[in-house]
Every structure is written in structure tokens, then in C-alpha cells.
Simulated assay, not measured.
Amino acid sequence: MSQIEIAQIIDQIKQEIAVDASGCGKASIRATARLANIDATGLVRSLKTAVDNSRSKLVEKLICKGFEAVEILGWSQSGIPDIAVAAILHYYGYEAGKRCTTQAKFACEAFESIGVRAWIQDLLGWTKPATSTKTAMTQIQLLAAIAQQMAQQEQYLLEQQQQQTQILARLKAVEVEQDRVNTPCGHKYSVVGFANLQGLEISVKEAGAKGRKASALCRKQGIEIERIHDPRFGKVGLYPESVLIEVFSTGQN
């Protein structure tokens, strides 16, 4: 869920929010549910427990915030007060357990910084009578600034993910190369490379002879011989370690 998606949702629910002359905002059940990314019917069902003996955890939270049970019950017709909207977003962002949504958390983080009431006021063009000639930053501008900061954080995380992907790709390339030179018979070496690894001196003639023996053993065992470029010989074969051990052991006997 990105800030762009949050902005799109806000635009979609704009017709379902209102602000009165005193600046108090309200949002419909559907608008609040869209902000929290929850089912509107489920939200209504939860709020209706306000007059039941067994209240939902959300209703208990709202009552602790100072709302009356009868008042909560009427929100499906009258709309949800802005302060209650903030409480509902916080509940579904952090307190609803497995029903928590990432969208509610993002919306809560953004709106808590400036207040849902101020956001609704500015979104609908409500302004408090000016008491100063100084021009202050509007609440929407504050929200935009917060959204920009969150977008920058998202970009930073994206860059970190890209770097991690590049590192993983390099590690994968190393693993592929290791798999290429490893077989069930062991590592693969050229004749000269294996001799150097064993601390043995070998002439070009001996290397050629042992290479032919190694090739014959590979063909006999059905092992494919890999060829690589060599600055001295043009191309040389790579043979499994087990084959080269047999070739060199035979030569010493």
C-alpha cells in the first residue's frame, strides 16, 4: 500500500465526509471502512454491540474515548465523528489482531500527525476566521509534506531492496559457477592445474599424454569433457578430480 493508493481512496470517499460550521467533521460508515480497508457490514455489526451485554473490543475502546453507547449506535445513520474515525483507524491498524490492516496503519500514521478533523476541514475547504495576517501552512500541505516523507522512505527501502537483489544475484552467479566446476566425482581441473595443485612438475608432453588418458576414462564412464580456453594450448579439457587421481596414480605406478 503506497501513499498514491491512499490518495486515491481519499478522493473516492470525499463525497461521503462532511464538516459542520464549527469545524467538526464526520465520515460515513462506508468511507471509514474504505480508509481502514475493512468490510463496512462488519464495522456496522461491531458498532451495534454498543447496546449489547457483550460489546466488541472496538466499542469498548470508543466508550473509553468518551463516546456514549446510544451515540455509537446512531453512527450508521448520522455518520462517525472525526475523533472516532481516528480511534477506529488506530484500532484496525494496531489493536485488531489478525484483522489489522496495513492500509489502516498507513492512514492512521498520516492522519495522526495532523488530526483527522483538520484533514476533513481542509479537504472540504472549511477555514477558520483569520486572526492573523500571517500565512500559515494549511493542513493539506502538512499532510502532503508527511506523505512526501513517507514516499522518500519507501524509495529508500526500494533502493535497499534493489541492492539486496543485486547482491543475491551475484551470490547466485557464484553458486552457479561452483556447480559448474563441481560434479559428484569432485572438482574439475585441467591436467596442468591438477599437477600444480599437487605440487608436481609436468612437461607439455606428459600433460598431453595424461590428458588423452583422462579423456579416454571420461568417455568410458560417460562423463562429458568440458573445454576451456588456455593461452598456451588454445583449449584444454577439464576433468573430474577422481579421474585425474586415477590417471596420475597410474602414471606413478
Rank of each mutant, 00 (worst) to 15 (best):
S2V: 05
Q3G: 07
E5I: 12
I6N: 07
Q8T: 13
I10M: 10
I13N: 04
K14F: 08
I17V: 02
D20L: 02
K26G: 00
I29F: 09
T32I: 05
N37I: 01
D39I: 03
A40K: 08
T41A: 13
G42C: 02
R45E: 09
S46D: 10
T49N: 04
R55V: 03
S56C: 04
K57V: 11
L58R: 02
E60M: 14
K61I: 05
K61L: 12
L62K: 07
L62Y: 09
I63Y: 05
I63L: 09
K65L: 04
K65A: 11
F67T: 04
F67D: 05
W75D: 01
Q77S: 13
G79W: 01
G79H: 01
I80Y: 10
I83L: 14
A87E: 15
A87Y: 14
I88R: 13
L89W: 12
L89R: 08
Y94H: 13
A96F: 08
G97A: 02
Q103G: 03
A107S: 05
C108L: 08
E109D: 10
F111D: 03
I114L: 13
R117D: 02
A118R: 13
D122V: 03
W126F: 01
T127K: 10
P129T: 06
T135I: 15
T138W: 04
Q141R: 09
L143S: 06
A145G: 11
Q149H: 15
A151M: 14
E154G: 04
Q155L: 10
Y156W: 15
Y156C: 08
L157R: 07
E159M: 11
Q160L: 11
Q161M: 12
Q162C: 04
T165K: 15
Q166W: 13
Q166H: 14
A173V: 05
V176H: 14
E177C: 10
D179W: 11
R180M: 08
P184L: 05
H187T: 08
K188V: 13
K188F: 15
V191K: 04
V191A: 02
G193V: 00
N196Y: 12
E201M: 15
S203R: 12
V204K: 12
A207L: 06
G211L: 01
K213P: 00
S215Y: 04
A216I: 00
L217P: 00
L217T: 00
I225W: 00
I225S: 00
E226T: 05
I228M: 14
H229R: 12
H229L: 06
D230A: 04
R232F: 15
F233V: 10
F233R: 07
P240W: 01
E241Q: 14
L244E: 05
L244W: 06
L244H: 05
E246Q: 04
E246I: 00
V247Q: 01
F248A: 02
S249E: 07
Q252H: 10
